[in-house]
């Protein structure tokens, strides 16, 4: 049984949801062209993940095994709609830039993966800690990637100019490649390398996918149609 502190700490690096467990990558790559959108996305995902884990963990004795995926998805989808409407109401500009990616938290394997792998089996407190740890791990990667891409791609952070652009009389020639899709893959690939540790080389080998495996097994376990 892991201690509460390690529940929070492990997902930051050793068991990072994005670079080690390969969960929730879609959004991690898509919203990182600027730090503002990345931070908003982190906040949205953290709220959904923590609330979903708490609710699912609290209901875990009442959720029948055969219909648990549907129930989990419905809970997550309701939370996502609330978050999406809140973003639209208070930070409309950012929510337009995030496009469909907030809605896609519904199918984010990080949320479903933690619900399925942890919250369904553990008490509420521990599930919340686990969700917070994983949100932090996810946010850490997003913030690193977004900082690199925004600083290198447009010389600013959160919209504030940091490096004086050549077009405005400064010296910095922005690398517009960093704003294009392929750069995100390279940066995450290099982060995976950076986060690699010799002693757990086996775990860096692409895992046979936690959440997907769990989901497949869950589906296979049920009666064939």
């Amino acid at each position: 049984m892991k201690s509460p502190a390690s529940l929070m700490r492990a997902p930051l690096r050793r068991n990072n949801p994005v670079t080690v467990q390969v969960l929730g990558i879609c959004s991690a790559l898509a919203v990182t062209t600027s730090l503002t959108t990345a931070l908003t996305m982190c906040a949205a995902l953290s709220v959904v993940l923590c609330a979903a884990s708490t609710i699912i963990s609290a209901l875990r004795h009442h959720i029948p095994n055969s219909t648990r995926l549907i129930i989990q998805i419905t809970i997550i989808a309701s939370l996502v709609i609330v978050v999406d409407l809140l973003l639209k109401a208070y930070v409309y500009d950012i929510s337009v830039r995030l496009s469909v990616f907030v809605s896609l938290i519904v199918t984010n394997c990080l949320v479903l993966g933690r619900a399925e792998a942890f919250a369904m089996k553990q008490p509420v407190g521990r599930s919340l800690l686990d969700a917070m740890g994983n949100s932090a791990g996810y946010s850490l990667v997003l913030i690193i990637v977004a900082s690199i891409r925004e600083l290198g791609g447009s010389g600013s952070l959160m919209g504030y100019a940091i490096l004086p652009l050549a077009s405005e009389g400064g010296w910095f020639e922005p690398l517009s490649f960093l704003l294009k899709a392929p750069s995100a893959f390279f940066i995450i690939g290099l982060l995976v390398w950076l986060g690699h540790r010799r002693d757990d080389a086996d775990s860096v080998e692409l895992p046979d996918h936690d959440s997907h495996l769990v989901i497949t097994q869950a589906q296979e376990g049920r009666q064939r149609p």
Partner: peptide, 14 residues
């Protein structure tokens, strides 16, 4: 060594 598996898959996808 550190790039094997996931790391290199990302680079190739890029």
């Amino acid at each position: 060594e550190g790039l094997r598996g996931l790391g290199i898959s990302f680079i190739v996808t890029g």
